[in-house]
Amino acid sequence: MAHLRPRSWGEALALRAAHPEAVPVSGGTDLMVRMNLAGHRPAALLDLSAVPGLAEWSDRSAWIRVGPAMTYTAMVRDLAEHAPALARASRGVGSPQIRNRGTIGGNLGTASPAGDCHPALLATRATIEVESVRGERLLPAREFYLGPRRSMLAPDELIKGVLIPKATAPQEFAKVGARNAMVIAVGSFALALHADEQRVGTGIGSAAPTPVIAGAAERYLDAELADGDYWEKRRPLPDVVHRRFAELVVTAADPIDDIRSTAAYRRHALGVLAYRALRWCWTDFLKGWR
């Protein structure tokens, strides 16, 4: 197996174009499992670890830009202020070892419906920067996921970064699994309140062939919050709004029965998570979040 180790981003793009058979590797926590367990033997590895700067994040006034090789440990440490849902999701990933190696770029590269970054990226309306020798593209997270482990990423492209609008109000992420740590989500949910735009964002994991948003729930909540002037008046939100929101979130899911859960439980759990996430976010918002 060939091991390609570019020293610069330009070289990485050139190698990606010249070696379509080479598989990029970042932390290796998805790829190595496939190689060890499934006997997957790529013809070559395109190892991105020597490309400088990929693990860093930067402040772009209204946005932050997260490098593809930023690890979960670093996101937990650094992103709680500007991307709280993503930081919260990162905290729940795997074990300390996996959080030290696993990266946001790898999570996007795999594009599993159970990947924990995705609901947060959907809820915050993040944008994914991808690039190839042909040029750069900006892909909204809400258009990125095409099917189970399939995304908009073209075969000659690399993920270059993730642009996330800075949090202007509370965000939450929660996932349900059959164990208290190191577990693949049976269902997950992210909620982001965007106070400046006066709208909300949602993201659902493990409940459909791809990560999805709960569009009807977002529209419902946006309308309720606008009609009651809740954003400005900062009033408590009636319980019935929480419940209706949760019901609409559940309708966005299209879960299946599998070895990890029944579809019925996935729906039920998602409703509970949506209800609680809204309660937590709104309570924090009323407390004068920043």
Binding site: R179, V183, L273, R276
Partner: peptide, 11 residues
């Protein structure tokens, strides 16, 4: 219950 997955604050 739920541990690091952040599902409850006591609810």
């Amino acid at each position: 219950p739920g541990g690091v997955a952040n599902v409850t604050r006591g609810e």
